[in-house]
Design a binder for these strands. Structure first.
Lengths: 155, 155
DNA sequence: TGTGAAACTGCCGGGCG
DNA sequence: CGCCCGGCAGTTTCACA
């Protein structure tokens, strides 16, 4: 993970369909080297997946909500697995603070949300209480991470 | 936005580097049709961007936190703009509930977090109070959205 | 939808540090 | 010894009919 790898990683996370020629240009290496570096980054899992990001509004998943979940220890693991399997659930984090989990959910509308909460989330025995925060508007939403420093990754 | 478009959208959001041949196969159309459909989906913004997703751990942004922000009306807009410009900020949502905003942040470690909160967030005059929830472990994290129904999008 | 030219990807051998 | 470069063959892309 040197400067070249960092440049390539940062470039492809913003331009997932860039050709090797463009990547080579940005990284300051030859096309074949860029090709090999990228192959390696993907092989080692630094670049873990490739996505075309859809506009949620245009595919009918315009409602974004965050659900705080208070969970009992009994049945916690099964509940998490179940939630992770749901397509509506984009994220599930075990968090510090008064609540156990923070879950990000995308659905079509309030009706679909109500349906999801009532039929999937609340029936689970481990779920003690939920608090739903609706995203009224989204100022920023990206999966791009800033690569902070001359960072050395362990193989 | 018909069945073919939906199949293509759903496929490329999971396989961002798929060739047109693969896409054609999945969607059940010819390669040139797949090419044209995808071009159109990207052109109209249904597929809004292409990303290589990086493993945050391996690029030195292993700490994920959510920050609830209470904000005053005065200076609110400038504060949001400033936050959106920060690379550490992955998401910023205006939310319902007792707090004004929910912000998702990725940094290297607790020191970098402390630094970001103290030097960027708290000094802003509109920021009245913050509450930071640290992600202790992430069970799921994806940008994939479920395309709910035979959904008709307006051009 | 099918065809063809242009571009791109991925591998190979050679050379430099 | 390891990494980088240029060239070649197969594949993919994109405009046109």
């Amino acid at each position: 993970m040197d400067e070249v790898d960092r440049k390539i990683s940062d470039f492809v996370q913003r331009n997932g369909r860039a050709s090797n020629a463009e990547i080579a240009e940005v990284a300051g290496v030859s096309v074949s080297t860029a090709n090999e570096r990228l192959r390696r980054l993907a092989g080692t899992g630094v670049v873990s997946q490739w996505r075309g990001v859809l506009d949620p509004q245009r595919v009918g998943a315009g409602l974004c909500v965050f659900v705080m979940i208070d969970m009992a220890y009994d049945g916690e693991e099964q509940a998490c697995e179940r939630l992770c399997q749901c397509d509506e659930v984009q994220e599930l984090h075990h968090i510090s603070g008064p609540h156990s989990y923070l879950m990000k959910v995308r659905v079509a509308d309030t009706r679909a949300l109500q349906d999801f909460i009532q039929t999937v989330v609340k029936p689970m025995k481990a779920v003690l209480k939920t608090e739903t925060l609706v995203s009224l508007s989204t100022q920023k939403e990206t999966s791009v991470v800033s690569i902070p420093v001359p960072y050395m990754a362990g193989g």
